[in-house]
């Protein structure tokens, strides 16, 4: 197993403590993210997902408990926070709403400029980041971000975070509000970053299919606590538990569960279409041996 990058220990976060509006968002969360992992965070609305990831780069401070990033404990102190925000890139929901510069180039360059880099270095990073998200720097660089399509704007915003060259990339519902094409494009790019660049990826999503396709491990939050933390197969094998808190399993798993309920003895811990097909074929062929009728 690779070494841990982000560690949360007994992390509790209370909003507006000591006022009538006090609310507990996280309660005693223990979590370890390992280098090179792709982890999905799922949970019903208000389960604390966004609050949790904002601790990964020090945007929120724990009310109780501790957080380490790359071996350094997050505490007050400008130097530490600066360093941590460089290491952990956080892409918020609807990140295109944060674009503000006159050109795509300048917007992506915002992060590197804040790091105080040389112009050549900035230039290089911007080009690289735009290429990573599949936008031609020469064509898109000089354009206004506000003239782009929704999917393109979102990719520019993600490039803006990538230009910080983070080790960990956290994306809060990166595909919300995109059409299927835009969704596929973004997910494809994220997978590339994870597989080719070795980035540690944390993906918050409401789509179990997305998580099943992208991640190796899934963390389920419920009412501010870790409800389940397991490899995807194992997690989605517990359909009843997930459904009990208003979540669901990937469509593929759902199909298998129904087949099983209908009497076909398939195993339900298959999460991709490919695997499911093989499983069904296996069971059907196996069945041919003891039933005389063809299927």
């Amino acid at each position: 197993m690779s070494d841990p990058v982000v560690v949360c220990e007994a992390l509790t976060h209370v909003y507006l403590r000591g006022t009538p509006f006090e609310s507990v968002a996280l309660q005693g969360v223990d979590l370890v993210l390992r280098r090179g992992e792709c982890v999905g965070i799922v949970g019903p609305t208000g389960s604390g997902k966004s609050t949790l990831v904002q601790h990964f780069n020090g945007l929120l401070r724990p009310t109780e408990g501790r957080v380490w990033v790359d071996g350094v404990e997050l505490r007050a102190g400008r130097g530490i926070l600066r360093e941590v925000r460089r290491k952990v890139g956080l892409v918020f929901q609807y990140p295109e709403h944060q674009l503000f510069e006159a050109t795509v180039f300048d917007d992506v360059a915002f992060g590197p400029r804040n790091l105080g880099l040389e112009p050549e270095e900035i230039q290089e990073r911007v080009r690289e980041s735009l290429q990573w998200v599949g936008l031609d720097p020469d064509r898109f660089g000089p354009r206004s971000p506000f003239s782009l399509s929704g999917g393109e704007m979102r990719r520019v915003a993600i490039a803006g975070v990538l230009a910080m060259r983070p080790q960990v990339l956290v994306l809060d519902e990166p595909t919300a509000g995109l059409d299927p094409e835009g969704r596929r494009e973004i997910l494809g790019r994220i997978r590339d970053l994870h597989q080719r660049m070795g980035l540690t990826v944390v993906l918050i999503s409401h789509s179990m299919d997305e998580v099943a396709r992208m991640c190796q491990r899934v963390v389920v939050l419920h009412q501010g606590r870790v409800f389940l933390d397991a490899p995807v197969r194992e997690a989605f094998g517990q359909a009843e538990r997930l459904r009990s808190i208003g979540l669901d399993v990937p469509h593929v798993t759902d199909v298998l569960l129904r087949l099983r309920a209908a009497g076909l003895p398939v195993r339900c811990d298959r999460i991709t279409v490919q695997e499911a097909c093989e499983e069904i074929v296996r069971v059907l062929q196996g069945g041919r041996k003891w039933s005389s009728s063809g299927v």
């Binding site: 780069n57 956080l90 915002f110």
Partner: peptide
Amino acid sequence: KIMKAQMARGADLDTGGLLRRARALVP
């Protein structure tokens, strides 16, 4: 939300002189 998003990109919103801070508000 926007402040946090820009801080995640290394924006420094609360140090420096008045002019610096004013400029930091543009994003």
